[in-house]
Nucleic acid binder design. Structure first.
Lengths: 223, 223
DNA sequence: CGCCAGATTGAGGAATATCAAACAGAGTGG
DNA sequence: CCACTCTGTTTGATATTCCTCAATCTGGCG
């Protein structure tokens, strides 16, 4: 993909060569990797597929805290806290590497390179959370969705036949909107031929138009 | 405060004893510590006062990414990135310690304790960002504001005469609302005698009522 | 006293949620 | 191969939340 160093210090081969025990895991759509509050024994790297990190509000409403793609890390909060801070659920058939947190801890104390890699991703996570805060705090539904679609596409080399395993409720839980509203906007985007969708595949037809909407031009309504 | 270890590994005395150069800095309300995009030479610890980290949208709208209190760190993104990711502005007269990032880098490589301390705070920052995502994504204005007031109060030992240097636009920029809406809700809270406000000081009169609202009980309107 | 910036209030409108109903598509059993 | 059901999506009508714009108010300060 875009960044070969994406696994630097944390790719399975390298870790195994350091006598770290790395378990390969495959899971299907909907599988729960861990639940929020579970005591944290393992961390994971996502090798293929997609995973959502979720929390729930008191009333049971689900909120998606982060979406993970190939190369992302999850469960690493266990390096500092005893329990997982979110639930992790596979959105699509996925492959992961499971790392023992205790071993990882030791390794990271010995190897600056591993430390660096973890810190790097941590930084990325913080960055992306802050971006979300801006999106949620300052943009309207259309703009949020447009931004999201473009960002999603960035994780793939092409604009056509993108894997898109998110349901409408998932999108809603990520964007802070109602399912119906998301559905309406997606329909709008399709009517305007900005995107196309079929059986879990997405195609970005008019990235520029989406980018315009994502920028939230004032008074530039769809129509 | 609540947590004596809050400066662990990063209090000025300790750092100085490690032959780290630590510059004490005092600033007044409105002072800019650094701007977004500035090349990052220094990091800071906030010893007293309050600071906001801000970003701006293309249209110029300000968004407050994080609010910092006594003991918080800022500018540490400079350990991984060359430039500051946000602007930092003092909300009140504040005192800080300025640390040279290069020195800090060296120190953290040598001393696990310092590393630990930084990592700890990083985790906290991520945690609080994720909490914000939930707030912004799933709660209504009233609930957001109520939550915020209670969280603000948590940073002080008492519920009366809390320093509260935030303007209405500041609150709005933090909560993702319009100034007017914030003003209305604050007025509501005062009318219901949940809070009281005078000259930059806040008093929480009915923490439980605020907590109820923060929980966003359905159908439990103010009235 | 008069002035000014920030805060409040009001009225109207836009954005979004809610509730209910219709719809589409993938299995499934006949 | 065709209904039939089930789940997820779309659509519609309506209510609510929130924003915008304009006007008024307040408190500090020259």
């Amino acid at each position: 993909m875009r960044d070969q160093s994406i696994f630097a210090g944390l790719n399975p081969e390298e870790l195994r060569s350091l006598s770290m025990e790395v378990e390969d895991i495959a899971c299907h759509q909907g599988d729960v990797l861990y639940r929020m509050g579970d005591s944290a024994r393992y961390a994971y790297t996502l090798r293929a597929g997609a995973v959502k990190l979720v929390k729930f509000m008191k009333n049971g409403q689900e909120v998606i805290i982060r979406l993970l793609h190939r190369g992302d890390l999850l469960g690493f909060e266990g390096m500092q806290e005893a329990h997982h801070r979110h639930g992790a659920i596979a959105l699509a058939p996925s492959q992961l590497c499971r790392l023992d947190l205790a071993e990882l801890q030791r390794l990271s104390e010995r190897l600056p390179k591993v430390r660096e890699a973890i810190l790097q991703r941590w930084q990325q996570a913080l960055q992306s959370s802050e971006d979300r805060i801006m999106e949620l705090g300052a943009k309207r539904a259309e703009a949020r969705l447009a931004t999201f679609l473009l960002q999603w596409a960035e994780h793939y080399p092409q604009l056509r036949h993108l894997p898109f395993p998110l349901s409408r409720p998932d999108l809603a839980a990520f964007l802070g909107l109602s399912t119906e509203h998301v559905s309406r906007i997606m329909a709008d985007f399709k009517r305007h031929a900005f995107i196309q969708e079929q059986r879990g595949q997405l195609e970005i037809l008019a990235p520029q138009s989406l980018a315009d909407i994502a920028g939230k031009l004032p008074d530039h309504k769809l129509d």
